[in-house]
Design a protein around this nucleic acid. Structure first.
Lengths: 326, 326
DNA sequence: TTGTACGCGTTATCAT
DNA sequence: ATGATAACGCGTACAA
């Protein structure tokens, strides 16, 4: 069929099938009943014209929605290097996909904020500001914020950081520890809450430092400390990656874990490359992701979405033990 | 201003500013010159009406593009657990963001294929088929395929798997190795090419098995083999994660690396948790990502995009050494 | 430099 | 069950 240059539209299909535009539309959407025979005629016409279905762009304009949810995660290699982010994101994308919605990775640019997004998820652990925020608020784009920070109008999905941290602390206290040190994350809602939970039990915990959740960075940070503070019998970390770093660095310096030092983490990630099960606080990653996606979907449909705080669970591993003087 | 219920449109702004619709449009897009005074009047009117800029949905329909590129990666936790995927994706998103385009994570569902995407990147190492493919082709969505499989009409971005694998093989041969074993990935273009490169030098290499790029899975797979084949002096892997798994498992069984066994990887990822630099083939992740994004952008603009094959580089580490009988 | 008028391709309302 | 018609909100020839 040479010369058929323009890609066919629904109007072309309707004409070819000898039905009205609206009937052809219904034959595709199924939003109202259409007799089997006409539907067949429409689909046949579509097939012979090479019509591949309603143009998503036009549908989007008409319906006032794009079918896309943005997720603000910052630089990918930072966001996804964190093993705690993956299972959560997996659950988010699964729920959204089941609802026919796409997930768009957003950088912190106004360009991205101006894409047609039905809702935006903020999952920027540790980053407290976001340049595109004002734009989104001005455009009334529904916001779902995972683990803070507190922004008016947003739906919050969180876990009980404080209770988890307190549970770890109590566990160590029960084991006889009295002098503990802690390694904190960059200033953020989770960091503040986890620290508060720790200090419910150990108000005087020594702060080793603030450190991103990275193995090498952690090792460097704790290196000097491990030699200098023989009184400390336990180190409480704010992530499992940090805890693994402390374990590796302690061993490198001849300190046994947990014989000479107890180490606790947070998150409950897999660490197959560590031959030791960490004592840690397990978060419900999948449920956190599902709750996040559900909230985004609800707000996309102008339904209300309640804030959520999910419980966590202390998991005892082999990285903590009774106090032993060094 | 109570009662102003409808969100303002460009027409409202134009009316309020006392200019025509097209002038108001130009004041925002800057596609044609507008006198400074009128532009100011338009922007002022926009401000007082709470107009937040042209509706992206309408703009998309008008311009026939969505500003979104899809990337097919399969389940996120699988795709992103692979450390080789991150730096590449990072580069992709950086280039796209600089061009004002968004990156959408696609699952293999027709729903996702029907989202308005300007182009789709396939980065599904090891998965040879993709349900949504036919839909995309039918709708003439430009396709960019990273590391195969071969699909007509798609732009290909690849690295020189075969040369890299051959370089590793030659290195081992130079060290005196004659009897080597190999651990392969799931059937795929990279797997076939890397294997071919190895067999240019070692046609009779023993295949230990086929295994995803996962530490635990690798350790399980090589466990039995390491005891059973004392003739083998080197193991060539198709990823660094596999290589790390072999190193760890060998040590666990009392075999020194490289004293008792040489191990080579592929990719050139960071392995801070391994106290040994792997001999490996370094791929240019960032450049691969940039080339991929550039191809997607070009094809979005109906420009041609040539296929790309990037060179790789052998990096000698401490995991390979001269032959020693076990 | 500014205004007029049309079309992008669809879905929703209303009537038949 | 089907058809006519009106938006959806914008960009851009073309004319002035």
């Amino acid at each position: 069929m040479p010369g058929s240059t323009r890609t066919p539209t629904l109007a072309d299909v309707a004409a070819a099938a000898g039905v009205s535009l609206s009937t052809a539309s219904l034959a595709f959407s199924g939003n109202k009943p259409v007799s089997a025979s006409t539907r067949e005629r429409v689909l046949a016409a579509a097939g012979s014209l090479g019509y591949t279905g309603p143009n998503p762009l036009a549908r989007n304009l008409r319906q006032g929605r794009s079918g896309v949810v943005g997720i603000a995660v910052g630089p990918l290699s930072t966001a996804f290097r964190d093993p705690a982010a993956l299972p959560m994101l997996d659950a988010v994308s699964e729920v959204l996909e089941a609802a026919g919605m796409g997930l768009l990775l957003m950088g912190d640019s106004v360009e991205h904020a101006r894409l047609p997004l039905d809702a935006v998820i903020y999952q920027i652990c540790g980053q407290e500001t976001w340049a595109a925020y004002d734009d989104l608020v001005a455009r009334d784009v529904p916001l779902v914020v995972v683990e803070g920070p507190a922004w008016p109008g947003a739906t919050f999905i969180d876990i009980d950081h404080r209770a988890g941290a307190a549970a770890v602390a109590h566990h160590l206290h029960d084991l006889g520890h009295r002098r503990v040190a802690t390694l904190t994350l960059q200033e953020s809602h989770p960091q503040r809450e986890r620290e508060a939970g720790l200090r419910e039990v150990f108000p005087d915990a020594v702060t080793i430092g603030r450190c991103v959740s990275d193995l090498a960075a952690t090792q460097e940070m704790v290196s000097a400390f491990l030699d200098g503070e023989p009184d400390v019998t336990a180190v409480v970390c704010q992530s499992d990656v940090q805890a693994a770093g402390v374990v590796l660095e302690a061993r490198r310096r001849g300190i046994d874990v947990p014989g000479g030092l107890s180490v606790a983490g947070f998150d409950g990630i897999d660490t197959p490359w560590l031959d030791l099960d960490l004592t840690t606080v397990v978060q419900p990653f999948a449920e956190k992701g599902r709750a996040t996606a559900r909230a985004a979907l609800a707000r996309t449909n102008d339904e209300p979405a309640d804030d959520v705080v999910l419980p966590v669970e202390l998991r005892l591993g082999a990285s903590t033990g009774p106090t032993v003087s060094r």
